[in-house]
Amino acid sequence: MLKGGVIMDVVDADQAKIAEDAGACAVMALERVPADIRKDGGVARMSNPKMIKEIQDAVSIPVMAKVRIGHFVEAQVLQSLSIDFIDESEVLTPADETNHVDKFEFDAPFVCGATNLGEALRRIGEGAAMIRSKGEAGTGNVVEAVRHMREIVGGIKRLTTLSPTELPTAAKDLQAPLELVREVANSGWLPVPVFCAGGIATPADAALMMQLGAEGNFVGSGIFKSDDPERRAKAIVEATTHFNDADRIAAASEQLGEAMPGIEMAALGEEGRLAGRGW
């Protein structure tokens, strides 16, 4: 029951506690936040199980952790730790450039990133229980998350305008399973929750994504790379709940100190983009 909440990246038990006390509905345990993964380079892998256990012991809210795209053994390891959610994530270095994990093989639920509706439906077709936008993690720049949310929500809206005769072609164009395309065209939403991730740095960013249709937010580097993580974490939770209330978002945005510095997309170049990982 994560909807309407904020899932925060944390690298140790202390940060996890700060996140929980600020009102996070879950934490994502990882060794380095995406901003540092970008800076340090090298291969980014699943976190050390010891660190994950320490975080599980420190908080009562759900604990998530990331596996590399296609790395089903990392997923087996996380499941053996009784992790609450597995994020098959483009933020880590992909282990398989062709195949994602067969998520139906697991009891633990998976969340997966997507840049558009077709990608979201392919992940659901592989068993994902939750979708998040990819955005561009570790940049503090919300522009890609906005693009992905608009792609997903716009894609859903378009499907609802099609006649049943047109859905097979839509499924072909989306490269998505026809059954899921039919289901989305009927219900007007994905069969799983859709969250936003990748670039949220301020309370206004969080509320923007909710107004665009996200059902909750993941915040990575944006909190613990800012001046005052505790206060910023609380403010982002507040803005996610009261996303239509500009007065409350304004109040939450005061006295936060500096946000994380942020990176322009043009400065990343194609090489630096994580969202292109996975298909």
Binding site: L2, K3, G5, A24, C25, A26, P62, K234
Partner: peptide, 16 residues
């Protein structure tokens, strides 16, 4: 009063 994370909901009740 729906399901969710009780710590988050309790805090949200207080903040509002």
């Amino acid at each position: 009063l729906p399901g969710g994370e009780s710590t988050t909901i309790v805090m949200g009740i207080e903040n509002a």
